[in-house]
Design a binder for these strands. Structure first.
Lengths: 135, 135
DNA sequence: AAATAGATTAGAATAATTCTAAAGAGGGAA
DNA sequence: TTCCCTCTTTAGAATTATTCTAATCTATTT
């Protein structure tokens, strides 16, 4: 991704555009691997692990990135959240697939009715298994 | 809850009905607090923390209990999952509300189409804020 | 260019969770 | 009922993902 645009994304969300943040954001936008902090650090070795964590926290706070806890490996996975989407997780392989072929408006309305809250976001994980996996 | 039924729940899922498991399952079924392992241990002091963790893992494996990661306190919260439902989380207070006024069939069908997997379960967390909270 | 609020860093600290290996107990078989 | 075997429980140690510290650096504003 071109640098000026990444810069704008950060600044539009009130974050200083440091070189580390530009690098990490670019990494997240160009990888569909749903990486952990450690995985990012393994690829971006010049950035300290503390900065990886700090930056991810900021990006999550402003809503650019979301956290997925697959609850299988005890680590948090991070996902660039440019367009709202949901996740389909293969229970055998733990592979995470992004999907957006579902309209969340009815769900939001149901949640508003049930809680009285103004709905601000959602996380959806759907679990499945390969049809030809034995049982 | 009456003991024989708890026993059946465990045995129907292939788990031995130990007294610790009966106690923990009863606790989960009678508390809507979405407790952490530590919270359960604080109330059931005679059961070791390792057993709390071991038991929760088993209950999650067989699908009686699910994990909610609110991603706010770094701890896993556990929820008896007798009837499928989704969660509405107040972003200010981190309160977790159970709700079931939503039909997941269309979502399951969308996920099946997107992934080709046989869908086995779901986790949905909807985030919201109190309408009269300032901004 | 200077000022400053915020960011980065290495390394230490924290704490949730998992592991170990020894002792105990369900539940099926006879 | 009693035996037996496999699975469970336990205390405490170990692990490790994440957070903290406090010193140094830098992006942005004036």
């Amino acid at each position: 991704m071109t640098e000026p645009l990444l810069r704008d994304i950060l600044q539009n969300h009130g974050l200083k555009a440091t070189s580390q943040r530009l690098t990490i954001l670019d990494y997240l936008m160009t990888h569909e691997t749903h990486p952990t902090a450690e995985m990012i650090h393994a690829d971006l070795t010049t950035i300290s692990l503390a900065t990886i964590y700090n930056t991810l926290e900021k990006l999550v706070d402003v809503g650019i990135v979301i956290v997925i806890d697959t609850q299988k490996d005890g680590k948090r996975h991070y996902d660039f959240y440019g367009e709202p989407h949901y996740h389909i997780i293969n229970s055998r392989t733990n592979e995470i697939i992004d999907a957006d072929n579902f309209d969340v408006k009815p769900l939001f309305e149901a949640a508003r009715q049930a809680s009285g809250l103004n709905i601000t976001g959602f996380h959806i994980e759907i679990y499945g298994v390969d049809p030809d996996d034995a049982k």
